[in-house]
Amino acid sequence: MTKQLLSVQDLSIDFLTRRGRVQALEDVSFTVSEGEILGIVGESGSGKSVLSYSIMGLSDKAANIRSGSIDFRGVPLKPEKMADLRGREISMVFQSPRTALNPIRKVGHQIEDVLRRHTPLRGKVLKSAAIEALARVRIPDPERRYEAYPFEMSGGMCQRVMIAMALACKPALLICDEPTTGLDVTTQAVIMDLVRDLVAETKMAAILITHDLALAGEYCDRIAVMHAGHIVEVAQSRSFPNELKHPYTERLFAALPSAAANLSELAIIPGSLPDLRGALPPCRYIARCERAKEDCSLGPLPWTKIDSDHLVRCRYPK
């Protein structure tokens, strides 16, 4: 039995904007255990980044956590304690690695910044720890790369540096927000293999956010599917795509393994995400759903438990 590391319960987040209240997340619940990779997939705008930023405590100033809790190792995450946890216990890797690194600072020094913040290492030891972090992500010739600037490296290499930085303090949870978007296919595989191996070597957990359903299926233990600020279905990856119960996920994965495996180019589901401003029906998929019945728009939407690992948020799961 693996130990539960992160638990998000009924998280609802609004953004107060000039043009109204954006209900970006509603009643989002999921858990991540040690040594596990959880995939989060969903169309653009479904709330994946909002979710990961709120775990990191990096939400926009306009964000308002309406309800819910985020527990880490069984203790609620407190905003004022987050600065200390970030980079040490929970780390994050972003899309577009080139811009995510400081362009005018040597990558070695950027890793040292993280180490200096969270460890007592200084001087020579600090430098060798940074080089070791680079070696851990299998960067060839780490001593030389330590001296390099981001602009001297390829996108894939920059992403490895980002991962090295994120893992420098050996965090318990790594959140990857579309870590391979924009990289070529071979580099994608190399980066993902790396993440998987690192998770396997340590007892680290990872959350992998992606548009790429095939990638999620290949690398994740469990997958959560998001739609318009809801998690609509969570299941073991092996349940994908054949045992899916929610009409949205069903249609989404029915297209696999076709060319449309990448959600960003996906057009198989008619209709689009509802406008998250203003009043929303309990099930945000209702306008696009072919199974919809009258009671779908009545009362709160229940979680339906298919088995211990498989939850669906639909009144009429298949």
């Binding site: 990096l58 040490r88 913040r117």
Partner: peptide
């Protein structure tokens, strides 16, 4: 508002380091 300052915050760097070094 750059990506690298977001990274600095995601790595827990102190406010002053983010403001000055980054």
């Amino acid at each position: 508002s750059s990506d690298y300052c977001r990274t600095a915050r995601a790595m827990g760097l102190s406010y002053s380091r983010m403001v000055f070094s980054y």
